[in-house]
Design a protein around this nucleic acid. Structure first.
Length: 467
RNA sequence: GGCGCCAUAGCCAAGUGGUAAGGCAGUGGACUGCAAAUCCGCGAUUCCCCAGUUCAAAUCUGGGUGGCGCCUCCA
């Protein structure tokens, strides 16, 4: 499997540290708000990566943290007159609600910054001991000039960063690029005891601490959005590698941005759409499909129109799935015909192509295309005209479901039994059709449509579904 | 100023040297009482522009144009 590594700017063959195992760390949300569609991209795409590794037989340990102490959380808490912890708990719950809707599985471990204070303090102490950090007035800063590789991930030399860095008035830092590891407590803020007095961790140290604690000194994959490359991931490298004296991460993966009218979707530009709102209008499934239909590193422009396109595309796949479920129940009995068996055998070609695409830096756009091509053939083979066996429908569904599950394709659930009331209306309409009373038949169809139930007349009888 | 990304049909989007996947929308046909769904067919002589390398370029090189991102919290 090849993955594009931001560190080397190349697609590289993935070689795990331990055979058959993958350790992954993703920077999770700062929990002070509902997530927006841009935030959803890494959440969805790295969920796909994790699923694909598992599909290929790897045992994956996936850690995603919650940043539950931060300026923004504190501000929010002050606005609402509740504690930071209450804000964090509320938005962690909201986060899981959205993830669940998006078909994103919970990580193996979801650690919180506030539950890792002793780990954080330990690393800061180690950095001070080794000369990579200095304490001043209750704050602790990282000494970037001491870390020779600073800038390696963002491919920016330290002097260029210095030229561009903001310099605060009366800054206590040795170098404008130095960043806070520990911040002295201000009145009214949540604070923890430390060797430097009461305070709280800086913005970057928690990820180094939690990655180290739950996954070890060197991990296989660290992922996140491209905007985390600098400074967040750069700083994590500086912290972890200086503290441990070894490589921090083997593969750095970064997703492209979602934009709106070609401007990056972001909270600061206030041009964002929350996942909650977008899902309310188009459905969570449309959001996931929207992401799956392009490559994770490509820029992607968000619009209502494109979510509708994604929703319609998904509908085609759901219809196919429902068709298979129908024939699994209503197909003919007995073993598959020779022709059917040959068709089922041919489906393995789609599975192979799907894997080739996924192996190529997680090309979900092509993987989805492979599924569409497979579905077209399945629709031909498992159609009323072919009088398919139940066995064929089941065999096709097995392959289809297998591939759909790998990328978490959100397919609508299958046939449910019609309620007595609906069944009666369908029967009444069939009677009218037999009597050539099409006006009545159409009237009943319209009535059902008004209830969100659409009918299809097939040689095998009437099929219905909720639209 | 430094670093980097993007430009493919009406819309979305793969493809990074061998002659343009897939989806949405549209449209013609089959099927249907009519629909819906499905299936079959149709749509880029061409991949922002110009020059170059090559037997061969959307793909490589150079130069332009347009758009975006990071360098400050940000997925």
């Amino acid at each position: 499997m090849k993955l594009f590594n931001t560190m080397t700017m190349k697609k590289e063959d993935f070689v795990p540290i331990q055979d058959g195992k993958v350790s992954m760390y993703a920077c999770g949300p700062t929990v002070y708000n509902l997530i927006h569609v841009g935030n959803a991209r890494p959440i969805i795409m790295f969920d796909v990566l994790r699923r694909y590794f598992e599909y290929r037989g790897f045992e994956v340990t996936f850690v995603q943290n919650f940043t539950d102490v931060d300026d923004k959380i504190i501000n929010r808490a002050n606005e609402e007159g509740i504690s930071s912890q209450e804000v964090a708990e509320k938005y962690i719950a909201e986060y899981f609600t959205d993830c669940s809707g998006l078909g994103v599985r919970a990580a193996t471990i979801h650690p919180k910054a506030t539950e890792n204070m002793s780990e954080i303090i330990k690393i800061v102490e180690k950095l001070i001991e080794k000369g990579y950090a200095y304490a001043t007035g209750g704050d602790v800063y990282y000494r970037t000039s001491k870390f020779g590789n600073y800038g390696c991930l963002s491919h920016q030399p330290l002097d260029e960063l210095q030229a561009g860095a903001r310099i605060d008035v009366a800054d206590v830092k040795e170098n404008p690029v130095d960043f806070a590891l520990w911040k002295a407590a201000k009145p009214g803020e949540p604070a923890w005891d430390s060797p430097w007095g009461k305070g709280r961790p800086g913005w970057h140290i928690e990820c180094s601490a939690m990655s180290n604690r739950y996954l070890g000194e060197t991990i296989d994959i660290h992922c996140g959005g491209q905007d985390l490359i600098f400074p967040h991931h750069e700083n994590e490298i500086a912290q972890s590698e200086a503290a441990n004296g070894c490589r921090f991460v083997n593969y750095w993966l970064h997703n492209g941005f979602i934009s709106v009218d070609n401007k990056k979707m972001s909270k600061s530009l206030n041009n964002f759409f929350t996942v909650r709102d977008a899902a309310g209008e188009y459905g969570y499934d449309a959001i996931r499909m929207f992401m799956l239909m392009s490559h994770y590193r490509s820029p992607l422009n968000y619009s209502g129109e494109i979510l509708i396109q994604a929703k319609n595309a998904l509908e085609r796949l759901s219809t196919a799935k429902a068709n298979l479920a129908f024939f699994a129940q209503n197909g003919s009995d007995g073993a598959m015909t020779a022709k059917e068996a040959a068709f089922v055998a041919s489906l393995s070609g789609f599975r192979e192509r799907f894997c080739l695409e996924m192996d190529d830096d997680l090309n979900t756009a092509d993987a989805v295309a492979v599924i569409f091509e497979m579905v077209r053939e399945i629709n031909s083979a498992v159609s009323p005209a072919e009088n398919p066996t139940k066995a064929l429908a089941l065999a096709c569904d097995e392959v289809f479901s297998e591939l759909a599950e790998v990328i978490g394709l959100p397919l609508a659930e299958t046939v449910e039994d019609a309620s007595a009331e609906i069944g009666e209306l369908i029967a009444k309409r069939q009677e009218a059709r037999r009597a050539k009373d099409f006006a009545l038949a159409d009237k009943i169809r319209d009535e059902l449509a008004a209830q969100g139930i659409s009918l299809e007349d097939t040689p095998q009888g009437v099929k219905w579904k909720r639209s």
